[in-house]
Design a protein around this nucleic acid. Structure first.
Lengths: 174, 174
DNA sequence: GTCTATAGTGGGATAGAC
DNA sequence: GTCTATCCCACTATAGAC
């Protein structure tokens, strides 16, 4: 689906992710990226066809990292849903702009390495049961994260307790 | 907190909301807004100090409309959480760009009419119990909505069933 | 694989005349 | 309250030389 990137293109993608993590989405421009690499912006186009390709490559690396984080959380867990939620939240808070880039728009599934999306989703599915419940749980976690990142909870809100309440709500009833 | 708008400013805000609903956020520029009103962009600055003020006014009207929709849902409801969720989803799907504008960034609470935010939040709090559970439920609903708007559920996903699963999860346990 | 030069687009905002 | 004229910014992207 995606032609593999050249070594130089991969360096560019790494630099773009650093830009994203350090200075936010609005810093991820072709100019700033070139500047960080010590070259001129037009030179980038010898390695990547356009900005969309850059973003897609960045998103792909983010999905891989998220999948790894969730898989690790699952292994360590007595209470799998809670551990997954914690890992999910930690990832999003550690890479807020990357996280939003990954989730804010339709996934260009046909331009992504095969399986990345499923791999990231699998741990949640296993922890929560049916696909419907997994999607609801994912929505809960995503909602918590984006509201927290956007600073939408009132200043006095206890965000940890809200996480706990949601995780408890999704516990199977015996 | 917010100086009241002049009549002309309110007309401009209405036009901005129409622009938002009909052509998306990227259409809500000072130039396009002026064009829709049959004037030139610089003239807008006689009525509103800057674009931020316009956005805040638009957000305020959106919060009021959302509050009304949720209050109505609560009155009609045998199953309050389900009715609220349905009303919330309907509002967001009917005004996707407005909804995202309203939720994507920190609320400029000090520049908003007093009480709007609380009024929109109150029905959820009453339906769900504790503030923590209300925030979790809100996060679930917000997450569902933004994932749906962003086209993030797989093509074969049954979104209605995911909503149902989340609503059920947040039902009180007897 | 890098450069210079540049095209083309779009945005927010101000000054000052009428 | 509206206008014209304008500034300044930032961005993506291409052509063609080296």
């Amino acid at each position: 689906m995606a032609e593999p990137l050249t070594a130089r293109a991969r360096e560019i993608v790494v630099a773009a992710r650093e830009l994203l993590d350090e200075h936010g989405v609005e810093a991820m421009t072709m100019r700033r990226l070139a500047e960080r690499l010590g070259i001129r912006a037009p030179s980038l186009y010898k390695h990547l066809p356009d900005k969309a390709a850059l973003e897609i490559a960045v998103i792909a690396t983010g999905l891989e990292d998220l999948a790894v984080a969730l898989e690790e959380a699952r292994h360590a867990a007595a209470e799998p849903a809670a551990a997954l939620a914690a890992a999910y939240r930690a990832f999003a808070l550690a890479h807020p702009d990357l996280y939003l880039l990954m989730t804010n728009r339709p996934l260009p599934r046909e331009r992504l390495p095969a399986g990345v999306e499923d791999r990231a989703a699998a741990p949640v599915l296993r922890a929560v049961g049916s696909p419907a419940r997994a999607r609801a749980f994912w929505a809960f976690a995503h909602g918590m994260v984006v509201l927290e990142l956007a600073g939408r909870f009132p200043p006095d809100a206890d965000v940890d307790t809200a996480w706990r309440a949601g995780i408890d709500a999704f516990r199977s009833r015996d």
